[in-house]
């Protein structure tokens, strides 16, 4: 069988390498969306709002004589729920973002649950204020860890 000329063989090999190089350049492993500084900032701001909500409830009001009646806090509950809904929507629309979305869903679920408990009991003891404050602080910490974790893709772990 007649062999192709040497220069043609070289061109074929070179073309194959170039093709492989171009394909590899287009190749990308993506398991997560990139880090979003705006979402990270919104997590911090919402966490601060929730912290302030419970701290001021603890410092400025008392469970005695209806001091913690639900009506006195309903507007703040709504304001924070709006922020949590916005965070959930922002996370939901990002592709490959199931983990962060789930953390937001859990936070919103517990926020609504504790709001309903407050509404039903029409008061909140100091102990429960403290427990709720701690619970949300821990959930926002998880949310922040998840968002900051996406920075690892571009940077080495700290």
């Amino acid at each position: 069988m007649k062999q192709p000329p040497r220069h043609l063989k070289k061109r074929i090999i070179l073309s194959a390498f170039i093709l492989m190089f171009l394909s590899l350049n287009a190749c990308k492993v993506t398991l997560l969306p990139g880090y979003d500084a705006n979402i990270s900032e919104q997590i911090v701001n919402t966490a601060k709002a929730v912290d302030k909500f419970y701290l001021s409830m603890q410092d400025n009001t008392s469970a005695e004589n209806g001091g913690r009646a639900f009506s006195k806090f309903s507007e703040q509950y709504v304001n924070i729920e709006v922020e949590l809904n916005a965070l959930l929507s922002k996370n939901k629309i990002r592709p490959l973002n199931q983990n962060s979305t789930r953390i937001c869903e859990i936070t919103l679920e517990l926020w609504t649950k504790y709001k309903e408990e407050h509404k039903k009991d029409n008061t909140l003891s100091d102990g429960l204020v403290k427990l709720n404050q701690k619970t949300f602080s821990d959930l926002f910490f998880a949310m922040q860890v998840a968002e900051k974790g996406k920075q690892i893709i571009g940077n080495p772990p700290q």
Partner: peptide
Amino acid sequence: KLIAEAELNAVGVISKALAQKAASAGL
């Protein structure tokens, strides 16, 4: 249980980010 699920999801993000970084380095 729900809070633990949230925390596991946060750990999951770090794990995925490390895997993506390793795969990109290999490529």
